[in-house]
């Protein structure tokens, strides 16, 4: 690949004008691209040499303003940071460029990011600290405490994770990975005084961290290595540590693993569902359970297998547990 200096690529570019078009369409451009070029160079070339009406957002050109994020063959990217030759290596020489969210397109690759900013606003993404106008001394943060915030602080609000999150695509209420990373960023800051308020927001059903589907796409797609899912896990932990975890299906589902492991070493699948849902809630799973039982897919409680050296596991669960529920 290194020796190839240029290559012909077919670009299919999403076009739509919400003021004049009922439906979007795609324009095709066949261009020779060089190995130094990034996607933003291509967009510029299309606009400057072929079609001046193509619209897209661009500003800093070095991966810090976050406005040029679009999707290439379904993968959310920063146009200014993504080399064409890397895309070609993954997807071949036909590249489809689309807005981050086609249903939110205003003009071509430009979307209305209102939902993204609304979700951010929901978590108060700023430091809340009641300090005097002229404090006697600085409020210093130790390197150790600052390190906890670093990754989350790298977020440039590009929306790559937000518009790649499958949970958010389905559930409009869900706050989503970018805003959760921001919620963690400020809640974990030793100077912040609104941590508990934020934790209540991320702990709420439907909108909160419990609706994460654990697909890891936010970690994969983030161009700044914020690793939002890791921050979501930390928010889960903080909710338990703050003692505000509600007694509901989501929290019991997480806690149920610890119970089951302490008893069998393994997960008791049936008991996890019963414990999470409660004795009434579990009834809605009975039709599927009957079908599974008929196919030999349900282990009855008295046949539950146990891990060998279960005493070791019991001992470790007892001595290593750090949380109470």
């Amino acid at each position: 690949m290194e020796s190839i200096k240029s290559q012909q690529v077919t670009f299919k570019v999403f076009r739509f004008n919400e003021e004049t078009d009922y439906l979007p369409y795609y324009n095709t451009y066949i261009l020779d691209v060089t190995h130094e070029e990034v996607v933003l160079d291509i967009l510029n070339r299309i606009k400057w040499d072929h079609d001046g009406s193509l619209s897209y957002r661009r500003s800093c050109r070095h991966g810090i303003c976050g406005v040029c994020s679009i999707k290439a063959n379904g993968k959310a990217i920063l146009a200014c940071k993504t080399r064409l030759f890397d895309l070609i290596e993954t997807f071949g020489s036909e590249i489809t460029l689309e807005p981050l969210s086609t249903k939110r397109a205003i003009k071509d690759l430009i979307i209305d990011k209102k939902d993204f900013w609304d979700k951010h606003a929901q978590v108060n993404p700023y430091l809340v600290s009641d300090i005097e106008e002229t404090p006697a001394s600085e409020h210093l943060v130790s390197p150790h405490d600052a390190e906890k915030l670093l990754e989350a602080d790298y977020c440039i609000q590009c929306g790559a994770c937000h518009y790649s999150c499958p949970a958010l695509e389905i559930n409009d209420e869900y706050i989503g990975p970018a805003a959760f990373a921001a919620a963690y960023r400020f809640s974990a800051d030793v100077r912040d005084e609104a941590s508990l308020d934020r934790l209540h927001v991320v702990n709420a059903e439907a909108q909160g961290v419990w609706d994460c589907v654990k697909c890891m796409e936010c970690a994969e797609v983030c161009p700044k290595e914020v690793n939002p899912i890791e921050k979501i896990t930390k928010l889960h932990n903080m909710v338990f540590e703050a003692g505000i975890a509600k007694n509901n299906v989501a929290t019991r589902h997480a806690v149920g693993f610890a119970h089951s492991i302490a008893k069998h070493g393994l997960l008791d699948e049936g008991e996890l569902v019963r414990y999470s849902e409660g004795n009434i809630g579990v009834l809605k799973h009975v039709p599927v359970a009957i079908k599974m039982f008929a196919k030999g897919k349900i282990v009855l409680p008295w046949n539950m297998p146990k891990a060998d050296k279960l005493d070791e596991i019991k001992k470790l669960v007892k001595s290593s547990s750090t949380v109470k529920f």
């Binding site: 654990k214 896990t233 889960h236 932990n237 338990f240 929290t251 589902h253 997480a254 806690v255 693993f257 610890a258 089951s260 492991i261 070493g265 393994l266 997960l267 891990a307 060998d308 050296k309 070791e312 596991i313 470790l316 669960v317 290593s320 547990s321 750090t322 949380v323 529920f325």
Partner: peptide
């Protein structure tokens, strides 16, 4: 590995990250 425990299935760490690490390390 008949001695192995459940890995926590990406949920135990939401409740108790350290316990999840210890069990997987085991």
């Amino acid at each position: 590995l008949t001695e192995a425990s459940c890995c926590g299935a990406s949920h135990l760490q939401d409740y108790d990250d350290f316990l999840s690490l210890v069990l997987n390390a085991r």
